[in-house]
Write a protein that binds this DNA or RNA. Sequence first.
RNA 1: GAGGGUGUAGCGAAGCUGGUUAUCGCGACGGCCUGUCACGCCGUAGAUCGCGGGUUCGAGUCCCGUCACUCUCGCCA
Length: 618
Amino acid sequence: MGLYTIVWEYFPKETQEGPSMAEEVFSQRTTTCGALTKADNGRHVVLNGWVHRDRNHGALHFINLRDRYGITQVVVDDDASAELQAVANELHLEYCIAVTGFVRLRPDSMVNPEMSTGEIEVKAESIEILSKCAPLPFQIDDGKETREDLRLKYRYLDLRSQGMQQRLRLRHEFILSCRNFLASRGFLEIETPTLIKSTPEGARDFLVPSRVYPGKFYALPQSPQLLKQILMVGGMDKYFQIARCYRDEDARGDRQLEFTQLDLEMSFVKRDDVLSLMEELFNHVFKDVMDYELPVHFRRLSYHDALNTYGCDKPDLRFDVPLSDVNDLAEQSTFSTFKEIVAKGGFVKALCAPRTEGVDFSRKYITELEEAAKIYGAQGLAWIKVGADRSLSGGVSKFFTGLEEALLKRVDAKEGDLILFVAHESWKKCCASLSAVRTKLGKDLHLIRKGFEFCWIIDFPLFEYNEDEGHWEAAHHMFSMPQAEYLDTLESDPGSVKGDLYDLVLNGYEVASGSIRIHDVELQKRIFRICNFEDQEAEERFGFLLNAFRYGPPPHGGIAPGVDRMVMIMSEQTSIHEVIAFPKNTAAVSPMDDSPSQVDQKQLDELHLIINYPKPKD
RNA sequence: GAGGGUGUAGCGAAGCUGGUUAUCGCGACGGCCUGUCACGCCGUAGAUCGCGGGUUCGAGUCCCGUCACUCUCGCCA
């Protein structure tokens, strides 16, 4: 960047056009491959870039020269010197070259309306090969899917593709727009350390051994949670940070070991202040970056309603297909499986798959849907077809005699639709399995609308019971404020306590999570105790936070949108690898540099580490 | 930790109920070509069919094991 700035300043525009100067003194780039138009006709230019296409007609030679800014057609004419012809014949794809020449208009019939530079071409006077390129391990941007591990191994080549260039640009613009907005609202960007104290907050920590203190470790932050709260105690009032976070858990398409959050925290705010700020932020950013108008306010759903209506706490609202409670109808039916589950206090829920052109609700397809439900714990998927004149047929229809109209009305079914049921003793598993069916239907029946559908999920439970460990733990994290009406019943009925918690959901992905925080020592200790941290242990692990809270902490709260996921969704991708320059694969390996790798014994010795290798499997 | 999918030339794919010389496109290499823009035309090389074992007269194809990648469950406040 600095280099080009210097060149521009050194050579004001008028002198750039003098061929002798540019040619003799500087073969430095004078313009980029996306900049030239017919207004530049006659200009003398130096372009740098890569050979994107090479069309050799013998005496006439076309080269598409590409850089980050675009593509310009370079022509080596039949009147070119023998020397220039020789260099042109030597070119191959992805050679890095410098082209000196004149901008000229293309003949009218040769204008390419597909290219922004399609009205002009550069007649080459000389071409310098800056560096050659070995035969490519895969073709860049040829429209075909290359195996991802190969793309990641040669990421530097993959990054040259138009898609990666556009997505990393979008990511830059997204972050820049967020920064600008937050700065304009008085937020300070403050960096917090990435070597911090390990605190058991949920995910497994990445640990960094201390050389100076044998047996002691730093942890990489899972989020700057406690540090940003302490910044609030420090009177910083409004803070944000583009924060790298680390979690040593198995990766997925939308989860990396390390990821980036737009972490922010505000003092003297209530929940709705945070929600409003985020709505304004994303309205600003989507308009700024994509010219996309979001609604001023996002829909809000309680956690309970989200599960009950869509079966999950991150519903994709780009299509409808709501879930209905049918316990009462199941009870009146003659289907013993349903009746038994209802009798045990379980749940029966149903949804209606709309008749869709080109999709046959065959037994085979219903089995596919059933498989999707079973992954989330359903024992089976019951079904009924709605025929002409609204008659019910197939599946469990015979058990619903006399209940036909009530059922049709409940799930809002029409002719040709398919009604699907899941029954389970657990409400969550019932919801989750039918939600999986809903999600599959959304894709298969092409129900998903274009666009961006945000919604808030609020009123989450503060605690969840951990069956394995035998105690309550924080559903979100231990620093979230219980809603005021539950303050007296925290200990007596943790399961019913709702927190001042909020998630932001976009197109079926959780894209941000936050809460109003606790800022009272005694309340914080009560939460620790409920989560099985006795005072002494809490003091050891979180003493620095509790100490800070003894010195006039302000009420505060915040949220942390995931940058990778946001940019992934904005660029219509389904993997965050597509918006990260150098991602790791699902096996936690970076195929390009082959990390993680072994280290020298000397390094281990300095860190006082002995490796206890796992025994090989028999 | 568990389940599904994939693995055939440098890349992307085809290869049927097992059958003898494993096919196509792109790329590479050589040649021709004055208006292309995914240029075109002619030719050449390039594959232990992920790896190991088994069944069989015969395995890319069937079976078992294993590895890699990938999706999902668990896990991820």
